[in-house]
């Protein structure tokens, strides 16, 4: 998302600069030499075309809807491009530490897979929540879930995280399917 926002803002800055330059250039040229206009863009033709269009024309509505939608998407992309790194406690003054959410998930995953009766696990993590989905052929959800929740919480307790994420564990076991 951050790369996308960087790319988009670069393109937007370019577009803003181009639009502003053309606006200033065309207006100044038309002011200086009314007979010589237009200079680069056929804007009198655009004006004529727009003068023949009514606000309730379908093409105007469609363009407006597309503009609004594009704006909304842009806002959402910009809002989603926040820092996702998980903050850890500062070990000393002027030292800040973060960990990628993927690293946290990887550490939890390795820990869960090393537990008894767990045949596999997928983990997703962010600063607020760690979700574990474990598979087990030998133990059902009833027995395994409290144990895994407990042990993952202990593991996370050993990592000096600024805020302790909630742990949610789901166990996928054939013993529960009857």
């Amino acid at each position: 998302m951050r790369i996308l926002v960087r790319l988009l803002s670069t393109l937007l800055a370019l577009a803003v600069a181009a639009a502003g330059g053309l606006l200033a250039l065309e207006t100044a040229w038309q002011w200086w030499r009314p007979d010589g206009a237009p200079l680069l863009l056929p804007w009198p033709r655009w004006l004529d075309a727009l003068a023949g269009l009514r606000w309730d024309a379908p093409v105007v509505r469609l363009t407006a809807a597309l503009t609004a939608l594009t704006g909304l998407v842009l806002m959402l992309v910009a809002a989603a491009a926040r820092r996702r790194a998980v903050r850890l406690h500062d070990p000393a003054t002027e030292v800040s530490v973060t960990m990628s959410p993927r690293s946290l998930a990887r550490a939890v995953g390795q820990h869960v897979r090393a537990q008894d009766n767990v045949s596999g696990a997928t983990v997703t993590a962010n600063a607020k929540k760690v979700r574990v989905r474990a598979r087990s052929a030998l133990e059902d959800e009833e027995g395994l879930r409290p144990r895994l929740t407990e042990s993952v919480s202990t593991l996370l307790g050993d990592v000096p995280l600024v805020r302790h994420p909630k742990v949610s564990v789901v166990v996928d076991s054939p013993k529960d399917r009857r």
Binding site: V5, L66, T67, V77
Partner: peptide, 13 residues
């Protein structure tokens, strides 16, 4: 910038 231009587009649309 991206958010502001998005907001402008949304408002205009």
């Amino acid at each position: 910038l991206a958010f502001g231009i998005g907001l402008l587009g949304l408002a205009a649309g």
